[in-house]
Structures are given as structure tokens and as C-alpha cells.
Design a protein around this nucleic acid. Structure first.
Length: 494
RNA sequence: GUCCCCAUAGCUCAGCGGUAGAGCAGCGGAUUCUUAAUCCGCGGGUCGCAGGUUCGAAUCCUGCUGGGGACACCA
């Protein structure tokens, strides 16, 4: 803590001023409201009460200006010694010397416009609501320069509270994130789908390929996993009789961190009975166009150097055909040696062993094809080997009825016609079990209860997973996932 | 996990072998319409940590810690 500020705290207490009072301070307006409505409705602002953090001080002698920052933005304050004639100390000592940038104040007064035309609150009374005991990085911006910008990413993420104080645009990212979630929720609710909650602590994890976090329940003395996906639970609900269910699901994957991955992240998953993946493609187009339009007011998004248009419909390409377009050959016809040659020709590094032929193909696809799709593009009909929960394609052998939506070269959504044949599902999970036995750490574990549920009969169902963090990145023009997570995972501070 | 880069005042940075610097923030003073307020004056540091080289290290070397970027993993 800052010694000078601590001394000021003591001095306030000595003067009988409580720097952390218990009494509430009710406000009747905000900075943004004043700035927006005062010009037309001056009479409504003769007696205002607002609260926020003192953000700037310009002491002029017997009169001073300051800036107060509340949730809605900044507003200028004007203080005059004459207003405190019954107790001039309040101005000369308390305001001028003991109030620091960052202190949270409640102010009362009336709104006026200064000579230079700035809407300002003439403060007649003020009160400490909380003293700030650390100096703040108060950014000052001029035409040429920014002073004291608070830019160190580590500090910004570690002390997100300071980041949010200092950077109004960071607040905006998280308001927008919430708006995105709200728009999706409204869209699904309007369709009549049921929002549900399923377990985060799972005795058997599944629904994706990933290493889980492991934990332990003491009373039951059992090993539990933090979910990597909620897919298998939502399907149980479809089996149970709901026709449409969705969940905003915080999922946990014990993997590396980079600018697209955080160990905990959010997806929304949706399952709708009696539909297939073609229907789901149309729904996704409608969903994204609606959400982007509602959140941004336009379906067109600037993301880095790209302009991305979320207007439906989106381009559709088939997995193997997209790969063939790049490498000039249908990889299904190639021997393993010929596949290896492609890795050399395109300078793609090999996957970690143990890998099978399909892992080579999947890797080529991820490295060579995905990055090419900037505008929203559906990639259809994935290899059956990499999609153990998706239904075999109705007419094309070797592939499943699955699509991924690629935007800006990254997977944004993943969906399939869900596999509802319990016999087929059992075989696919057994194959996964073999891969696990052979050292494939990310292969799915066997889930007998899920298979039993399927044996009771699951209607044909379309399922979707949509990455909320990635979508937020796109709609906020954020270059890294950390920018759209309030508290991204960091190593502990020393 | 690997490689590269970074770590100096509250914040942003300069200094790169010879007494630790600037701007903003802060402290004292002047100032009743400022808005990067202005003007005068002042303080502020275990140069991330630990070793080493050297007469001498913020500066060079090694290790460690934290962060950023790239790769790998995440099909």
C-alpha cells in the first residue's frame, strides 16, 4: 500500500471523516445520463446525486475541476470554495489534499455548462464512499501521445479490476460478451428449447477428445473429472423426452494455453430431436446472422485484416473435396507413403505418435484447409474415425453427417446428426477404448450408462456445439482469447 | 514441453561495463472556467531473483521465476 495514501487515510479519520462509511449513498443519475439528456432537459438536472471514482483533478485555487468515472463513463466536476463556506476545510484540505485519484466519492450538486461548453456537475456536497490505497495508472491521452498507458498484458489480466477501471473499452468487451450470450439464449428460447444444467463433476468424461482435469470427492471416495463436454448428458435428456435442450457449458480441458485456448472455456451446446445436420446448418446460419445483427447492428464484422459477413447462407464444402482442392488428390486413395510425401511437400510436421493413417489426414486438413476459410464456411462430412458420436453418412461410406463451421480460419462450431444406433455406438466406443489402450490419451472412455440410455431409443437428433469465447473474439475484434475472458488462467504470482 | 523476446520509479519507457534517468502519477507552493490545466520547487528505485566474470555489473555470462510471441498439444 502507498504510504502517502495511508497517511491521508489516518488524517481523514482524525478529522472525523469515515473513509469507508456504512451508510448507503443512493444515486439518481449517471455520467452518461447527464451527458445525454441534460442539453434537452436542463430542469431535470438541478439536483443530481452520482457516485464513482475520482479520475482527474485540476486544482485552480479557489475553484477546481475534476473528473468522476462511473460505470457509464466520465463526467467533469466543478468545486468552488465558496460552496463550503461553513466549513472551508472541506475544500481546502479534504478535497484538495486528501482526495486522491481513484477514491470513490458520492457527489451532489447541479449540472451546468462551462464557458468552454463542457457539461459539468457543480458539486455542492461530496462524501467519501471508499478510499483507494494504491496509486492508479491514470492514462492521459493527447493528440501526439498517451501517458501512463496501462498496457502490460500480465498486469492487465492479473489485476483485471484495474484494467476495467482504466480501460472503458475493456468494459465494453464484457458487456458485449454478455449481449452475445443473451442474444443466443433469446434465440433458443424463442424456438422453445429448454435451457438446462448438467453436471460439471462427472464420474466418466466424454463428448470430446481431450485430457480432463481430475479431482476427488472425499465422502464418496471417488475420482471425478471436470467435464470436457456436456454432450452425453444433453443426449440423455433428449432420450428422456425433451425435444430441444441447450446449455451454456463451461468446459475444462487439461491442455496448453495459447491465444485460442484457455483451460476453461465456454460453449453452448444444443440438441434438437427429429432433426439432422442439414437442418442444423440452416439454424446456425439464422442464429449467427440474428445474433451478430442484434449485437453489432450489422451482419458484417471487422476482424483484424478481414471483413467477415455473417449474412446467411454460408458456403458449404465437403471435407475430402476441400482437402483435394489444396493437395490435388483425393487423400483416401493415397498410400501412407504418399501421405508422408504431402507432409514434406507442404512442410507440415507429423502428429505425435501413436498415430494412424486417419490422424495424418486430419492433420493435413487442419494445417492446410482450415486456415483458408475466412468467411463463414461449413465443412461437411468428416471421416468416421474422428467422429465417434456422429451418425454414419446416409449415402457416403467412410464419413459421418457432421459439419464444422470455420470462420477466420478457426473452428467456431461443430455439429452432427447424432449417432442414435446403440449397436454402432458401442462399436465406436470400443474402438476408442482400443486407442486408449494403445496410448491414445485423448481417446474417449467407455460410458456404459450412456450406451444403456441409447438402448432405450434416442430419436434422430441434431446436435451443435458453438464456441462462445471464439465468437466473442470475432465480434470484439480481439486477437486473443484472454481479451474476452475476465480472468484468464495465469501462473500464480510469486 | 521447445525456441525466440521481455522484466529498470505507481504507469509507460530510455540507459546496455564507470555516481540510476524522462514523461505521466505523487509531495510542497501559486492560481475562481480548467479539460494533457498552467507556473515554481521537491521527493521517489534491492534495475525480477540467485550465482558468476570484472578493480567495478542495471549493463556481460549461467540458472531460476514471471510474462509475451511462435511451435507442439488441443484431430
Amino acid at each position: 500500500m502507498d504510504a502517502i495514501r495511508q497517511a491521508k487515510l489516518q488524517e481523514l479519520r482524525r478529522l472525523g471523516i469515515d473513509p469507508f462509511p456504512t451508510e448507503p449513498f443512493s444515486i439518481n443519475t449517471t455520467a452518461a445520463e447527464i451527458l445525454r439528456y441534460y442539453p434537452q432537459q436542463k430542469l431535470d438536472f438541478k439536483s443530481v446525486r452520482l457516485a464513482g471514482r475520482l479520475w482527474r483533478k485540476r486544482l485552480m485555487g479557489k475553484a477546481s475541476f475534476a473528473v468522476l468515472r462511473d460505470e457509464t463513463g466520465d463526467i467533469q466536476l466543478y468545486f468552488q470554495r465558496d460552496d463550503f463556506s461553513e466549513n472551508p476545510e472541506l475544500y481546502d484540505v479534504v478535497f484538495k489534499k486528501l482526495v486522491d485519484l481513484g477514491d470513490i466519492l458520492g457527489v451532489e450538486g447541479f449540472v451546468f455548462t462551462t464557458k468552454t461548453g463542457e457539461i459539468t456537475v457543480h458539486v455542492q456536497r461530496f462524501r467519501f464512499l471508499a478510499k483507494c490505497l494504491h496509486p492508479l495508472p491514470v492514462e492521459k491521452e493527447t493528440e501526439e501521445k498517451v501517458y501512463a498507458a496501462f498496457t502490460d498484458p500480465e498486469l492487465r489480466y492479473r489485476m483485471r479490476y484495474v484494467d476495467l477501471m482504466v480501460h472503458l473499452n475493456v468494459r465494453e468487451i464484457f458487456r458485449r460478451r454478455t449481449a452475445i450470450v443473451q442474444a443466443i439464449r433469446d434465440f433458443f428460447n424463442q424456438k422453445g428449447y429448454l435451457e438446462v444444467e448438467t453436471p460439471i463433476l462427472q464420474p466418466i468424461y466424454g463428448g470430446a477428445f481431450a485430457r480432463p482435469f481430475t479431482t476427488h470427492h472425499n465422502a464418496l471416495d471417488m475420482q471425478l473429472y471436470l467435464r470436457i463436454s456436456n454432450e452425453l448428458y444433453l443426449k440423455r435428456l433428449i432420450i428422456g423426452g425433451f425435444t430441444g435442450v441447450y446449455e451454456f457449458s463451461k468446459d475444462f480441458r487439461n491442455e496448453g494455453i495459447d491465444r485460442y485456448h484457455n483451460p476453461e472455456f465456454t460453449q453452448v451446446e444444443l440438441y434438437v430431436a427429429y432433426q439432422d445436420y442439414f437442418w442444423m446448418m440452416t439454424l446456425v446460419e439464422e442464429l449467427l446472422e440474428t445474433v451478430v445483427q442484434r449485437v453489432l447492428g450489422t451482419p458484417v464484422v471487422r476482424y483484424g485484416e478481414y471483413e467477415i459477413d455473417f449474412s446467411a447462407p454460408y458456403k458449404r464444402v465437403k471435407y475430402y473435396e476441400a482437402l483435394e482442392e489444396v493437395v490435388g488428390k483425393d487423400v483416401r486413395t493415397l498410400s501412407e507413403e504418399e501421405l508422408m510425401k504431402l507432409f514434406q511437400a507442404y512442410e507440415v510436421s507429423l502428429p505425435e505418435p501413436p498415430y494412424e493413417r486417419i490422424d495424418l489426414i486430419a492433420r493435413l486438413f487442419d494445417k492446410l484447409v482450415e486456415p483458408r476459410f475466412i468467411q463463414p464456411t461449413f465443412v461437411l462430412d468428416y471421416p468416421i474415425e474422428v467422429s465417434p458420436l456422429a451418425k454414419a453418412h446416409r449415402s457416403t461410406p467412410g464419413v459421418v453427417e457432421r459439419f464444422e463451421l470455420i470462420v477466420a480460419g478457426k473452428e467456431l462450431a461443430n455439429a452432427y446428426s447424432e449417432l442414435n444406433d446403440p449397436i454402432d455406438q458401442r462399436q465406436r466406443l470400443e474402438k476408442q477404448a482400443q486407442l486408449r489402450a494403445a496410448g491414445g490419451e485423448e481417446a474417449m472412455p467407455m460410458d456404459e450408462d450412456f450406451l444403456r440410455a441409447l438402448e432405450y431409443g434416442m430419436p434422430p437428433t441434431a446436435g451443435l456445439g458453438l464456441g462462445i469465447d471464439r465468437l466473442t473474439m470475432l465480434l470484439c475484434n480481439a486477437p486473443s482469447i484472454q481479451e474476452v475472458l475476465l480472468f484468464p488462467l495465469l501462473r500464480p504470482e510469486r
